[in-house]
Structure formats: structure tokens, C-alpha cells
Simulated scan of single mutants.
Amino acid sequence: MSTRLHRGFDHFALRAADFDATVRFYTEALGFTVAYEWTSPGTVGRSAFLDAGNGSCLELFDAPTSVPGGPAHPDLTAPAPTDAERAAHNALLHIALRTDDVDAAYAHALTHGARAMQAPADLPQTGLNGHTDSRIRLAFVYGLDSEVIELIQRDDFVTAAGSPAASDR
């Protein structure tokens, strides 16, 4: 048996301006569960892994926590950047969450504090080698910390040979 170079995404990390509100948003609006909470050594901040339901997680840090790849001491007094400023400067474009019903997930997220970015729509698509066997429906919202969340509903991709795409292998 050969070693796999990866087994999918493990987690994404997000700094939350209001830790408790962000935990509530991801658990109540998007169906995550709190898997593990901790306080990072040498900090006063709180951290948590929120399980997406398939073993992939969203890692949350509250605002004063220093995190790998982040500023040592974030400036909490500076005004928060606008959605447009974040989009212009962030390397991470969005977090995509797979759902069975984009329209219902979009409406539910909005009732729990998300802000509308792009309403649900079908993505015009041409599949591999011109096949159009796969359907994609998606929507985008801004989360409580201006993170862009894509809600995506899609069939497994179908290859030219008619079998599921390599992601299922």
C-alpha cells in the first residue's frame, strides 16, 4: 500500500472578533459541533475546533490570541477592514461548505446573522471533455467576521468514462 500525500482538508483557521457569537453561528446556523476547546499556552485567548461533520474542522481563535501565521499582537483598536478590503488582501478567498439544499442553507445562515453576498444560483458548467452530467448550485454569504462562506450543492463529478472523479478514489 502506498502512502497518500493527503487525505483531504483537515481544518481552516479563523480569528473571531466575538468568539461566542461565532461559535453559535457555526453551530446553530451551519450545523457544526464543538469538538475541542482549549486556551493556547502563554495567551489569554480561547480556541476551538468545530467539526463540520465529516472530520474536517474549522479552527477558531478569539481576537486576542496570537496564532501561527498571524500577528503576534493583533491591533484590536484599529477599525475592522471592510468586506471589500478583506477580499482585496486575503489569500484565502472563501470557505466552501457542501450542503444538500443550498437555498435552505442560505436562508438559514441569513437568519443567524450572515450577510448576503450572492443568492443561490446554478453554475453554468461544462464537465470534463464536454460532459454536462454534473450539477452545481451555490450561494455565498459573509460570516460574522466577514469571512466569505460558499454554500455548494453538487453531484459528484463524472469523468468522461462515466465513473466518479478521482476525489472518490
Rank of each mutant, 00 (worst) to 15 (best):
G55A: 05
F19V: 05
V141S: 05
T39R: 05
L144K: 02
A52E: 10
N129H: 12
R24T: 15
I152M: 07
F32H: 00
R169S: 11
N54Q: 09
T126A: 11
S66K: 10
D168C: 07
L93P: 02
A78N: 08
P164R: 02
D122Y: 07
F32C: 02
A87W: 00
R15W: 01
H131D: 11
A166W: 00
R137E: 10
L93F: 10
H112F: 00
V67Q: 06
A121P: 02
L128A: 12
H131S: 13
G127Q: 02
H6K: 10
Y36H: 15
G55W: 02
N90P: 02
P74F: 02
D10E: 05
F19Q: 04
V102T: 09
A119Q: 12
D122K: 05
T132E: 14
D18F: 01
D62P: 15
L14I: 02
V23R: 03
P79C: 07
A121Y: 14
H11I: 06
I95N: 05
T77P: 12
T22S: 15
F19P: 01
V148D: 05
R169Y: 10
Q153E: 15
E59P: 00
A107D: 14
A107Y: 00
R135N: 13
A107V: 05
A48Q: 06
H108C: 11
A114V: 08
H11V: 03
R169N: 12
T43M: 04
R86H: 07
D20I: 10
F32A: 01
L151E: 10
R46D: 00
